[in-house]
């Protein structure tokens, strides 16, 4: 559940924060969300990754379809990647990686602070 919750919150963060802030500020934001919501490590990785990756994917596709612009194809050709579709995929993967490691780092940071009792007699 927490993983799904994180995914949704990260997506919302990207939609509202990213237009006014560069990607690295968004990464910090995702880490904070990861720490606050605190799923397990894998959940933080996937929640941050899918939240950012899917949002970037959606934003690219939205722009490409709505504008019908030749630019994605032109950029794809320029970068030697063939078509604009490849660039959509590359953008989504990049978003996933940036979000995933941020989310995971956030979760691990929370774990670091969380005081798990040690050497306590549990009866």
């Amino acid at each position: 559940m927490r993983f799904i919750f994180l995914t949704i919150l990260v997506a919302i963060l990207v939609v509202f924060l990213n237009p006014v802030a560069p990607y690295w500020v968004v990464m910090i934001g995702i880490a904070v969300l990861g720490a606050l919501i605190a799923p397990n490590g894998f959940g933080g990785f996937m929640g941050g990754g899918l939240g950012m990756g899917l949002t970037w994917l959606g934003q690219c596709i939205y722009l490409a379809i709505n504008t019908n612009s030749p630019l994605p194809d032109r950029m794809g050709e320029l970068m030697g990647l063939g078509s604009g579709m490849t660039l959509v995929a590359v953008t989504a993967v990049l978003g996933f990686l940036l979000g995933a490691f941020s989310g995971w780092a956030g979760v691990l940071f929370r774990n670091l602070l969380q005081h798990t009792p040690e050497n306590v007699y549990r009866g």
């Binding site: 990213n18 690219c60 722009l63 490409a64 630019l71 994605p72 953008t91 990049l94």
Partner: peptide, 26 residues
Amino acid sequence: VSMPIGQIPPLAPLLDPNHGFWQNTL
């Protein structure tokens, strides 16, 4: 992804759909 590699520009600012080249599709 924030630094140029040879002639390749920094990837994240270029690909970020909110700031990068995707915005120039408008």
